[in-house]
């Protein structure tokens, strides 16, 4: 298996210049991101997500450990050639127009003039800013800046996209548009690494996730595995009182919803036993579904366990 990103025991300690106080922002992160996947990096504020991304991009220097991008030492300038990056809280120079900004950053990425001239209108159209290319960035809204920022990251057709809060400040339609663009890139085999606190977005979009807490990887895996297999939900219209009490004792949770009684069972066996008891008394079963945790549940559980 080949990896787009690999880190091994990555540590970043920040030392205060005056007091000498140390902060371990990243504390021994070992992580592998498969090529072609969509990867979400999650964590509470101050967990070390942005520092981790900065280490990948050599904006910050690791105190210990190593990071590679497509097998190349992340500290080398050439390792950054396949990367398209959209930082959080970016400040694009406001004296540039959308077009000149794309041109400038693409030139830094090594694209020649002819390729830039072809690609700029294409990408402006893709992100829905075709009519805004000659307008100064100072006049753009936050959502538009985010979209032109994404275009900037895509200019040189990167094979690894690192996005820090890509939908921050973008309205729902813009968010959908960004998701569609990213899905199209995923189809083309581009590895997408998203650093976000919007768990719903990550759950919708990412295949793999890692949750970082206090600079360490607290949990890592496939989204479908992490959110699956929590139990079974049984919805019944009417249950005789005695049987209800019995089922309440067996269930992990009970709720009254839309006129139905919902029992939550921890295992398939318990759910089947409940079905047998209900059917023996001719009770009408409304629904039986397998329940999953949301990524938010997983995230909260993971962070709380580590507190």
């Amino acid at each position: 298996m080949s990896f787009a990103i690999e880190t091994e025991g990555l540590v970043k300690i920040f030392r205060s210049r005056w007091s000498g106080k140390e902060v371990r922002a990243v504390d021994g992160i070992t992580l592998s991101v498969e090529q072609g996947t969509t990867f979400g990096l999650l964590g509470p504020n101050g967990a070390g997500k942005t520092t981790f991304v900065k280490l990948l991009l050599s904006c910050a220097h690791a105190t210990q450990g190593r990071a590679t991008i497509f097998g190349r030492d992340a500290r080398e300038a050439e390792a950054r050639r396949p990367i398209g990056y959209l930082p959080e809280n970016h400040r694009f120079p406001t004296y540039l127009t959308g077009r000149s900004m794309l041109d400038f950053y693409a030139a830094l990425s090594g694209m020649d003039g002819a390729a830039r001239r072809t690609r700029i209108p294409e990408l402006l159209a893709t992100v829905g800013l075709a009519d805004w290319g000659n307008v100064r960035l100072g006049k753009y809204s936050k959502g538009m800046l985010q979209r032109v920022g994404l275009a900037q990251a895509l200019m040189h057709s990167p094979t690894l996209l690192i996005l820090d809060e890509p939908t921050d400040g973008v309205d729902p339609i813009g968010r959908r548009q960004i998701r569609d663009i990213l899905h199209a890139l995923e189809q083309q085999g581009v590895t997408i690494f998203v650093n976000s606190h919007l768990l719903g977005e990550v759950e919708l979009f990412c295949r793999d996730v890692a949750i970082i807490h206090r600079g360490k990887v607290a949990l890592e895996g496939k989204v479908k595995d992490l959110t699956a297999g929590a139990g079974y939900r049984l919805a019944v219209d009417y249950v005789p009182e005695r049987l209800e009490q019995e089922l309440r004792a067996r269930a992990t949770a009970v709720a009254q919803r839309n006129g139905s009684l919902e029992f939550l069972f921890g295992s398939r066996e318990e759910a089947n036993q409940a079905v047998d008891l209900l059917r023996a008394q001719y009770c009408e079963i409304e629904a039986l579904t397998r329940t999953t945790s949301t990524l938010e549940d997983v995230f909260v559980r993971t962070v709380e366990d580590r507190q």
Binding site: K54, L57, S58, C59, A77, E78, A79, R80, R81, I83, Y85, P87, N89, H90, R91, F92, P93, Y105, L108, S109, G110, Q152, I162
Partner: peptide
């Protein structure tokens, strides 16, 4: 010093340039 502004410098450093 304008180059070192947070949000601007990260983007410059993310490019394949020494």
């Amino acid at each position: 010093p304008a180059v070192f502004e947070p949000g601007r410098i990260e983007l410059l450093l993310s490019k394949p340039v020494e």
